[in-house]
Amino acid sequence: MAASAHPAIPWPGFSPERAFVLPLRAELMAAPFGEVCQFDGIRLHRKHEFHATVLSREMARAAAAACGEPHLRELYASLSWVPSRTGRYALLHQVKPADQGGRACWSLIEHLQFPAMLAFRAELARVLGRLFDDPVPHVTHYVHGDPDGIGVPDTRALAATLVREVAP
């Protein structure tokens, strides 16, 4: 699959109570695996909502407390928010806590080229510290076990959940 770019993403709004996410247009998120795919014996189902998470809830709270929404909006406006798809996929696995022990969760993500996200978080890291370092620009295409998928706020989280890269 050839890499493709999305149109620029306008300011999506911000709330320190939730993750700061950028919606991606579903019609531009075709994937080469169909509606249901299977890897390592696990059936994953296609998501119908797509987004790139710029800041986790924890990061959004820290950024709001330190900078305030007007500064974050200004920083956002200074960048060109146009992600490009790479066609590079990764299978992730994590056991999440559940009422009856653990719940096995799987996600299939696609890495994105997203210079604005890297610049946005680099500026926050410069001002606020390491919490904002090492982003992993990506979009989740398929899930199993949790409809929200697996959180991947940084390279450490990716390393902890990565099963393997997946070829289209």
Rank of each mutant, 00 (worst) to 15 (best):
E17V: 00
R18D: 02
R18P: 01
R18M: 01
A19L: 08
A19C: 13
F20P: 09
F20K: 03
F20I: 06
P23M: 01
P23W: 02
L24A: 02
L24D: 03
A26F: 00
E27L: 04
M29H: 00
A30P: 13
A30C: 10
A31N: 05
P32Y: 02
E35L: 00
E35R: 10
V36W: 09
V36Y: 03
C37D: 04
Q38V: 08
Q38C: 12
Q38S: 13
F39Y: 07
D40E: 14
D40V: 02
G41N: 09
G41P: 08
R43N: 13
H45P: 06
H45E: 15
H45D: 14
H45C: 14
K47A: 02
H48D: 15
H48E: 15
H48S: 15
H48F: 14
F50P: 15
H51Q: 14
T53S: 10
V54E: 07
S56Q: 12
S56M: 08
S56T: 12
M59Q: 15
R61Q: 11
A62N: 09
A62M: 12
A64T: 06
A66I: 07
A66M: 07
C67E: 15
G68E: 09
G68A: 02
G68S: 05
E69T: 07
L72Q: 08
E74R: 12
L75A: 09
Y76F: 15
Y76S: 06
Y76G: 09
S78D: 07
S78M: 08
L79D: 05
W81E: 05
W81R: 06
P83Y: 05
P83A: 03
S84A: 03
S84R: 10
T86G: 11
T86Y: 07
G87L: 11
R88L: 12
R88C: 05
A90F: 01
L92C: 03
K96T: 02
P97N: 11
P97G: 12
A98I: 03
D99M: 04
D99G: 11
D99T: 04
G101P: 09
G101E: 10
A104E: 14
C105M: 04
C105D: 08
S107C: 10
L108H: 04
I109K: 04
E110G: 08
H111C: 05
L112E: 08
Q113H: 00
Q113F: 00
P115L: 02
A116K: 06
M117C: 06
M117E: 10
L118H: 03
A119I: 08
F120W: 12
A122N: 12
A122C: 09
E123F: 00
E123D: 13
E123C: 06
L124E: 10
A125M: 11
L128H: 09
G129Y: 03
G129I: 03
R130N: 04
L131M: 13
L131K: 12
L131N: 06
L131E: 14
F132G: 08
